[in-house]
Design a protein around this nucleic acid. Structure first.
Lengths: 233, 233
DNA sequence: CGTATAATTGAGGGATATCAAAACCGGTGG
DNA sequence: CCACCGGTTTTGATATCCCTCAATTATACG
């Protein structure tokens, strides 16, 4: 059992780390989460993540995305899910959930089941509720980005947000984070063309804001990047 | 009591009509809603709608808006609330809830209180849950509009959405609806300049899609407008 | 009527898209 | 070890959608 538990913890670590930002998780909470991850899957890029409308999955590595594809092929990525995030079928017609990079997921059904069985005032449940509110905040933020910001500001804002999220999930020290996506994905997130994303990222590099190396992105000056992306203090 | 009840019903009608789209409301549900509207307020345009973070209000006429205002004054309206919608403080920094037109609201605290006291499997509660999901769908849709559509498509999409929402609230026959907003408001919703909104609306009129007269908007050909805005069938 | 607000029009510029090609890069087989 | 290969990044040139600025007309309201 020792090995199994250790493996399970590793897969769940981003999820529990994320939740622990919103409320203190009690001893019993953490024990409850020592559940055996089921149905570990490896998804190729662009592969649909969910096979049924009821399925829920927890991302353990890579990026998953909720997107809307218009009739003529234009794709808008509505939300990016990173390790520790749970994805489900969005309530939107013509919406789809797919792997934005090669990604790993596990079945989150039992996890949600267990969450629903917990007392409403327990630490995990309060944390989960706040995490939901945070998810809604991300959607609002995405609207503000696309509607009111320039390309440069959108990129700065998005990178700042992802950095904070990775840090909350215990996957960043506040300066470095995994960066598995192609510029085409970033383009579909930010509502820009691939070519323009390339130019904007170059500009951010020239401005000494970021560096990218071997699947990682380094934010040289988090403060300045946040300011460029209108991140509230 | 007769008068009071009649008055209350009128104010609550859009709300109950909206909910009844998602689940059949039982006899007891409707009785429960026969509650006396409190604290009816008239808001001038641009006036903040909420005085505290805990306040929740039900819009009974006009438009309310959740917006994010950037440091340099740019405003993005994240969500438009019409009659029958409940608004609360968004979980977003630098977010604000204000009247987009002159608007009337009542205190929705007692209403939500009452909702929470109802059985989880009752009609109203199921309807309310689905209404929440629908709200999230609207946010997704707004992201797709701003990120992937042209100005013309954004306008078509937004008008189509508002028409459907007014119809669900019992405030439209499927072709006509209240249209209280200035073009500046539309601009801040669609992420466009006021001037360009004007030109796009003119184009929609020239194309025989819409007409605007005395505070009402008439959609001449709902099908064609929906298609222009990529509304799923 | 006169005044303020909103809608409309025109001219010109800028941000971003599109198109096309070239350089790069990690893997794979000869 | 090298040549190739598909996918990704980068670059250049041109087009276009939409913005900004500024002025004019329409509309509502006292």
């Amino acid at each position: 059992m020792g090995l199994a538990v250790r493996k399970s913890s590793a897969l769940l670590a981003p999820f529990t780390a994320h939740l622990s930002n919103y409320a203190a998780l009690g001893e019993e909470d953490l024990n409850g989460l020592g559940w055996e991850p089921a149905d570990l899957q490896l998804h190729a890029i662009r592969e649909p993540l969910l096979s049924g409308p009821e399925e829920v999955r927890l991302v353990t590595s890579g990026w998953a995305g909720v997107s809307r594809v218009l009739a003529d092929g234009r794709r808008q990525i509505l939300h990016v899910a990173i390790a520790g995030d749970i994805v489900n079928a969005p309530p939107i017609a013509e919406g789809e959930v797919s792997a934005l990079t090669t990604a790993r997921t596990i079945d989150a059904g039992p996890l949600l089941e267990w969450l629903r069985s917990q007392a409403a005032n327990s630490g995990v449940v309060r944390a989960w509720t706040l995490a939901q509110a945070e998810h809604q905040r991300l959607l609002y933020e995405q609207i503000a980005r696309l509607g009111a910001m320039t390309a440069y500001e959108r990129a700065a804002s998005f990178i700042t947000e992802l950095l904070a999220r990775h840090q909350r999930a215990g996957l960043s020290d506040g300066r470095r984070m995994p960066w598995p996506a192609t510029q085409e994905v970033i383009a579909d997130v930010l509502g820009l063309s691939m070519v323009h994303v390339n130019r904007v990222l170059q500009q951010l590099r020239r401005d000494g804001m970021i560096e990218t190396r071997s699947g990682m992105l380094i934010v040289c000056d988090p403060e300045r990047l946040a300011a460029a992306g209108f991140a509230p203090a």
